[in-house]
């Protein structure tokens, strides 16, 4: 990794941490509050690509693990990895990677902005929803022994919020690409 890549990943990790400091917002049609932090994971993939995006997310988790309250709601410390929702934290790493991989493979500067936005949306949903929930639900089912289908039903309430985040991440990713392109990842 070049120094610049390392710094980009670290700065993005700082952005993800800062997004966790924003108060959660309630959307009218969803019963649960949504936090901006998991959108940061999608954004990391969309803007930095697979490699640097994954490193950014790993850094946030490392900071949490060594005892800094960097996760939304001021959570941190090794205890966050002992919660029923730990699968989602582990899933972040793979979510950022998947999102980044799809984004850097399929979104090209030559495409129209609509195509780019749709490409980023697809990448954010594949990583930040499909892959993320696969990890989160599997872990929840394993740790509680309630089985996959019940764990899936219990997680359903959060999916609409995450789809909204994927829309925002796609729009923001597109705008950042226009203003300060970092994809395709430079050598």
């Amino acid at each position: 990794m070049t120094t610049r890549d390392l710094v980009l990943a670290a700065l993005f990790a700082a952005i993800i941490v800062a997004l966790g400091l924003l108060p959660p917002i309630m959307l009218g049609f969803i019963p649960v509050p949504i936090t901006a932090q998991s959108m940061g994971v999608m954004l990391a993939g969309v803007i930095l690509g697979a490699r640097r995006g994954t490193v950014a997310v790993l850094l946030v988790l490392l900071l949490a693990a060594i005892g800094l309250p960097v996760l939304s709601g001021g959570r941190g410390g090794l205890a966050v990895f002992a919660a029923p929702t730990t699968g989602y934290l582990i899933g972040w790493v793979f979510a950022a990677f998947t999102t980044g991989l799809i984004a850097q493979r399929f979104v090209k500067p030559s495409q129209t902005s609509l195509i780019q936005t749709l490409g980023f949306f697809a990448a954010a949903v594949a990583g930040g929803v499909v892959v993320l929930y696969a990890f989160g639900i599997t872990y929840l089912a394993f740790i509680t022994g309630i089985g996959m289908s019940k764990a899936f039903l219990g997680s359903m309430a959060f999916i609409p919020g995450d789809l909204v985040k994927a829309v925002v991440a796609a729009l923001a990713g597109r705008a950042v690409m226009a203003g300060y392109p970092l994809l395709p990842a430079r050598a």
Binding site: V7, L11, F12, I47, V168, A172, A175, Y180
Partner: peptide, 30 residues
């Protein structure tokens, strides 16, 4: 709005990466 806040926030932050990286290299830290 979410996008009008996040986009400039990210661009401004990432733009400082070049100088921070240059400072790390200039000081021979790695």
């Amino acid at each position: 709005r979410a996008t009008t806040m996040i986009v400039p926030l990210i661009i401004q932050t990432l733009k400082s990466a070049d100088e921070v990286a240059a400072a790390i290299d200039a000081r021979g830290i790695r």
